[in-house]
Write a protein that binds this DNA or RNA. Structure first.
Lengths: 223, 223
DNA sequence: TTCATAATATGACTGTTGGTCATTATATTA
DNA sequence: TAATATAATGACCAACAGTCATATTATGAA
């Protein structure tokens, strides 16, 4: 008696292969989508162009993703994981040179320079009408990655407090504030680089450093 | 001999009336658009619905605005002028109580509570594909208003430096940093209030206060 | 008042695009 | 080899931004 729910060995192998093929297709689609979205932005990109670029029919795309928005946010999820890996390297920084949060900012800024385009997605992802067309699972996944990134920054702050470099603050709150500050400044500059330089008259890197300086000054334990 | 370029008195009066009627129509359209955009967001709103709401034909809308995006950003421009007026009240605060930047944050937060929806537009307006469909004049107008708002904050910082409350910093840079910080934090919370509370576990107002506290601590002259 | 002309408004129409689904092609298993 | 399950296709549909030929209204002269 064979129960339809129980698979034999070769069936397991096969279904495993299926899963991998499915993953591979997904990646192929995402690669094409990344190129198109990075080049055109969400609004001007079309699913047809993504399909064309990876030589699949449009219908096939929708076998792998629920909506244009779902593809878009999946790319953001990728980007956040990339950032997470970069920040992960900071885990065993010990702050012996008195620098802790500085390394986090530096890593984040480095990531920005190499992966500017992901930030556009991040900023657009705050729009509720876009989020409405993205699955809860994917959104949760993004949030979890964000939480991990924030956790790394928070740990650095915690380390600094233990070492007496920083005042006794809520590391978690400070991590969130640092994160938001940097994003806010980057958003200001993304807004429109031309006008922005006119308005602020200060280069992004200098502005970030000034901001960090200010916050750090407030953060540092009084000598 | 009458030159077609020269108008007599009644013609001038009439053309003046025309101009006012044109302005009035614009306002009517903007009011309807604001309602629709605030309710549905940019992507889910339709120009047809805006037209319906102000009882005009769609074609008429396009006599007054160049694109859906132009309407959207016009609403943002309105919002920024509103904010400018709120901040304008701070101009003759003298800081006798040792509070300067605090008032700016308080005013900005108050504006946010009353006019949340404008922030969604602000965050979306950083997308280049959207900006591409907005006239340069309108974008310049927005930037000018932003500059004025920042100027007010910058003046408060300058005042604080003169009074010896704050360290000698670049008031303009600090104004930009404060502005960006608050926007960054608000964006974090707009991202998704539910998840965000889960992640940060801290209320927006508390977070803003902590951020201000940190920055102010770095800003304050050492007693 | 009447008619000609200019200014303004209209909504049917067009092209584009996100998403669907009946059909076709391919792989698997008996 | 035939039957069945799985995956891919692209013609099709509905929705929507934006257009433009036509209709309506206001203006000014006679």
């Amino acid at each position: 008696m064979t129960n339809s729910h129980i698979m034999n060995n070769s069936q397991i192998i096969r279904s495993e292969r299926r899963r991998k093929e499915h993953e591979a297709r997904r990646r192929v689609i995402l690669k094409a989508a990344r190129e198109v979205f990075f080049h055109k932005g969400f609004m001007d990109a079309t699913v047809d162009e993504i399909a064309e670029r990876c030589r699949l029919a449009k219908g096939t795309i929708y076998l792998y993703f629920g909506s244009k928005e779902e593809i878009y946010i999946s790319i953001m999820a990728e980007g956040m994981k990339l950032l997470g890996r970069e920040l992960g390297r900071l885990k065993d920084i010990d702050g012996g040179d008195g620098m802790l949060v500085e390394h986090a900012l530096s890593a984040y800024y480095g990531f920005y320079l190499k992966n500017r385009k992901y930030f556009r997605i991040m900023f657009l992802s705050s729009q509720p009408d876009l989020r409405a067309r993205v699955s809860d699972d994917l959104l949760k996944d993004c949030m979890e990655t964000a939480r991990q990134c924030l956790g790394i920054v928070g740990d650095l702050v915690r380390k600094g407090i233990k070492r007496g470099i920083y005042r006794k603050v809520d590391p978690w709150a400070v991590a969130n504030i640092l994160w938001a500050t940097v994003n806010g400044i980057i958003m200001s500059y993304e807004q429109d680089p031309v006008y922005r330089e006119e308005i602020a008259g200060i280069e992004l890197e200098k502005m970030l450093n000034e901001a960090l300086g200010l916050v750090l000054n407030g953060l540092r334990a009084k000598g």
